[in-house]
Amino acid sequence: MSKCATDEENEPPMGLRELARTGFGPKGGVLITELTGSQCKWPLWEDASGPFHCCGAPRGKGPYCEDHSRIGSAGRVSLPKLPRGG
């Protein structure tokens, strides 16, 4: 009897760009204004229009969690900039 592949098995692996927009902390991330010093500051927003959520997972040795540190080390993802006040 043959085994049917599930939809999950047929989906392509997540690309680095999509993975970079994934939060590994609280669902939906944490508003940048509510981050604590022990939370990952990896930005989850796409552009300067907001809302400005960050990952919020427990930090590693730097400003990001271990997962986002690895993604950042890949050097292929540019982080979005915060809008300047004016």
Rank of each mutant, 00 (worst) to 15 (best):
M1H: 13
M1W: 07
K3C: 09
K3D: 07
T6S: 09
T6F: 08
E11P: 03
E11M: 06
E11C: 08
P12E: 02
P13F: 07
G15K: 15
R17Y: 04
R17E: 00
L19S: 09
L19V: 03
L19I: 03
A20E: 02
R21H: 12
T22Y: 13
G23K: 08
G25H: 13
P26N: 08
P26Q: 03
K27F: 15
K27C: 08
K27Q: 13
G28K: 12
G29R: 11
T33R: 15
L35M: 09
L35E: 05
L35Y: 12
S38D: 07
S38W: 13
Q39H: 09
K41I: 06
K41Q: 13
W42P: 05
P43L: 03
P43H: 10
L44C: 08
W45N: 09
E46L: 12
A48C: 11
A48Y: 14
S49V: 04
G50I: 05
P51T: 04
P51K: 15
F52G: 02
H53P: 03
C54N: 08
C55N: 07
A57R: 14
A57Y: 10
R59A: 00
R59H: 07
R59D: 00
K61A: 09
P63M: 12
C65F: 04
D67T: 00
S69L: 01
G72V: 00
S73W: 12
S73I: 00
R76W: 11
R76I: 01
V77I: 00
S78Q: 13
S78F: 14
R84D: 05
